[in-house]
Computed example of a mutant assay.
Amino acid sequence: MQRVTRDDVIKAIGPVDEVTIAEIIGTGATADELAEAQAWMVNDEPLMNEGRPLASGRVRELIDILAEFESSEDEDGKAASPATDGQV
């Protein structure tokens, strides 16, 4: 299997900062492992129902990186949203 490339990362998760790309590539993961990590991120219940063991190794590393990326993306979005003054 070939290791994931910068282009693979961008195709898989969209626009992302260079640090995150470097972290993902640095895991030595393949495109299949990146896809598996994304599947766990989206919804882990079906994977567990299939009897799959919890993610480990490079897939676990990728999940941690993707979770951190999503967390920072959420914080950026919240900071940019206008205040509502408690009105709904």
Rank of each mutant, 00 (worst) to 15 (best):
E45R: 15
E23C: 10
D44L: 04
W40Y: 05
I10Y: 08
A37H: 07
D32H: 03
Q38N: 10
V16M: 10
G26H: 13
A37S: 07
D8W: 06
V16S: 10
T20K: 02
T30L: 09
M48C: 08
A12S: 14
Q38K: 11
E23G: 00
T27R: 15
Q38F: 08
G26I: 06
D32P: 01
K11D: 13
T30G: 12
T20F: 03
P15T: 14
Q38V: 09
D44P: 15
A37G: 03
G14N: 09
G14Q: 04
I24M: 10
A35T: 12
A31W: 04
T20M: 01
A12L: 08
E18H: 02
E18W: 04
E18T: 02
P15L: 11
V16H: 04
A37K: 04
A35H: 11
E33K: 06
T20A: 09
A12Y: 03
I24V: 15
W40H: 05
A37Y: 04
E23I: 00
E45H: 08
K11P: 00
T20I: 09
P46A: 08
V19I: 14
M48G: 08
V9E: 00
M41T: 07
A22E: 05
A29Y: 14
V19Q: 14
L47T: 09
K11T: 04
V16W: 09
V9A: 07
D8F: 05
A35Q: 13
E36I: 07
G28Q: 01
I10R: 14
D32T: 04
M48E: 13
D44W: 05
G28Y: 06
I13N: 00
E23N: 13
T27Y: 14
I21V: 15
I10V: 15
I21N: 07
I24Q: 05
I13L: 00
D32A: 13
T20H: 02
V9L: 03
M41V: 09
N43M: 10
G14P: 10
A22L: 05
I13A: 00
I10Q: 09
K11V: 05
A35M: 08
E23R: 15
I10G: 02
A39I: 02
A29I: 15
A31E: 04
L34R: 08
A31D: 09
E18A: 06
E33G: 06
G26Q: 03
I21E: 08
M41C: 12
T20S: 12
T27P: 14
M41W: 02
I24N: 02
W40A: 05
A37N: 06
W40N: 06
E18N: 06
I21D: 03
V9I: 11
G28F: 07
M48R: 15
T27S: 14
A35N: 11
I25V: 14
T27I: 14
E45S: 12
V19D: 14
E36L: 12
E36C: 10
N43G: 03
V42I: 08
P46V: 02
M41I: 11
P46W: 01
E36D: 15
I10W: 05
T27G: 14
D44C: 02
G14F: 06
Q38L: 12
I21P: 04
E45Q: 15
I13E: 00
A31Y: 07
E23S: 14
K11A: 15
I25E: 12
E18S: 05
T30S: 15
